[in-house]
């Protein structure tokens, strides 16, 4: 081997070896398993062709969870993006105490989904009259709600959406603030001299300047929404397991392949492959629609 090649692998080799073992092998192995009857085994012998895929694609539970999460994504992504942008614009406009407000909105990033779930489930949205949100409701003459304990109306979505917003907004706000600060200030001065209104300046300077970040935020958001697990598992799950509604695809995969009722790794793997394709497809479509609309 040439010297430079040896040096290259000295640097890159350890990482590539690990990537092969812990990313490439799993992907290959899982694709392989998805064509086998792999109950409680990782070395199956019973080839079943596309049966696992047929199983998954005709399973109302799986389809339901994917479509529920498409609706979830369609709601949470624009909401997160708009609110994060609003926070960034607000924080960016003030001079005094800017760092303070930025830190406050960013602080939930330090909190885990598990801890946030605990606070939301047991305190903020606790179904008892003394729950924080129920107390606030009471001040305005509202009736206390059960929040998580009731299916009709499905108020648990309020709990799940607000916890995710609280945890994620700060992260995206930081991205937007960074992007806002990269827009050259003299553009605004020029626009002001030309007599542009603040609204026009926002439309023709700020928005185009944020375009790259907007696409980044939407994409990250999208991938995250389909992979929701932590807060769903911890807020809706209890000692009896997970309820039949609001099941994220990952919760479905988790219970199918690792649950106590028989581990079906073949079917779980087929579900994982389908989910990967769904995420890829939706990302692609969103990207295309978004780029065309510019």
């Amino acid at each position: 081997m040439r010297r430079s090649a040896r040096t290259f692998w000295l640097f890159v080799g350890p990482f590539v070896a690990g990537l092969l073992v812990f990313t490439y092998v799993p992907i290959g192995w899982s694709t392989y398993l998805s064509f086998f009857d792999a109950h409680n085994t990782v070395a199956p012998t019973d080839f079943v062709g596309l049966a696992n895929y047929v199983d998954v694609l005709t399973d109302g539970e799986f389809l339901g969870s994917v479509s529920t999460f498409t609706v979830f994504a369609a709601f949470i992504i624009p909401t997160t993006t708009a609110l994060a942008l609003a926070l960034a614009l607000l924080v960016n406009r003030i001079r005094f105490a800017r760092t303070f407000f930025r830190s406050v909105f960013f602080l939930p990033f330090a909190c885990s989904y598990v801890v946030a779930s605990l606070v939301w489930k047991m305190s903020l949205f606790s179904g008892v009259d003394s729950g924080v949100v129920n107390t606030v409701f009471g001040w305005f003459g509202g009736e206390p709600q059960a929040w998580i304990g009731t299916v009709d109306p499905p108020l648990y979505w309020v709990v799940l959406v607000t916890v995710r917003l609280w945890l994620q907004l700060g992260f995206y706000m930081i991205l937007f603030i960074a992007a806002l600060q990269r827009i050259p200030g003299n553009l605004y001065e020029a626009a002001w001299i030309d007599g542009a209104s603040p609204r026009q300046a926002f439309r023709h300077i700020t928005l185009p300047g944020l375009r790259g970040t907007l696409i980044a935020v939407l994409t990250l958001n999208l991938i995250n929404a389909y992979q929701a697990f932590d807060e769903f598992y911890n807020i809706l799950g209890d000692s009896r397991g997970y309820p039949p509604f609001a099941r994220p695809p990952l919760v479905y995969l988790y219970y199918t392949s690792l649950g106590s009722g028989g581990q079906d790794l073949g079917r779980g793997s087929a579900g994982a492959v389908v989910l990967a394709l769904v995420i890829a497809l939706v990302t692609l479509l969103t990207g295309r629609v978004f780029r065309r609309s510019q």
Binding site: W29, S30, L33, L250, L275
Partner: peptide, 10 residues
């Protein structure tokens, strides 16, 4: 989301 299961297997 897609690799958690196969990685578990490995």
């Amino acid at each position: 989301a897609v690799t958690f299961l196969p990685s578990f297997v490995v």
